[in-house]
């Protein structure tokens, strides 16, 4: 079960995230549960694989907003980097970033169980 301590340990800025949830811990956890299932993670990976960088950018951009609001820093930061890269569209290898995002997402998902 998710706890604030676990989230802190994970690296989330829980004070910041909780304040946007009006201090309501249960609500905060509920929203975190939703972001884990956000379809934009998969859209991002698929679009990068298909070299549809516009679509990938949109997905990353959306994720960035949500992860920032929930202050899930360890995922938020790599998503920000990917978003900026995709905005500029350089021909780079995104796999390292995507892996980092995927790993952190799995780690967070593990905390929820």
């Amino acid at each position: 079960m998710l706890t604030l301590d676990a989230l802190k340990q994970f690296g989330a800025d829980t004070d910041d995230g909780l304040s946007r949830c009006m201090g309501n811990e249960a609500f905060y956890f509920k929203l975190i549960g939703k972001v884990i299932d956000d379809s934009n993670f998969k859209i991002l990976e698929d679009a990068v694989a298909a070299k549809d960088l516009d679509k990938a950018f949109e997905a990353a951009h959306s994720l960035k907003g949500v992860l920032g609001n929930l202050a899930l820093t360890p995922i938020y930061e790599p998503v920000c980097e990917v978003t900026e890269l995709l905005r500029a569209k350089p021909d780079v290898d995104y796999s390292e970033y995507l892996k980092k995002i995927s790993d952190k997402r799995s780690e967070l998902a593990g905390l929820l169980k």
Partner: peptide, 13 residues
């Protein structure tokens, strides 16, 4: 907003 988390967060506020 297309992100449910953002919508619910604002609604709650």
């Amino acid at each position: 907003d297309d992100e449910i988390v953002n919508r619910e967060m604002l609604e709650n506020i």
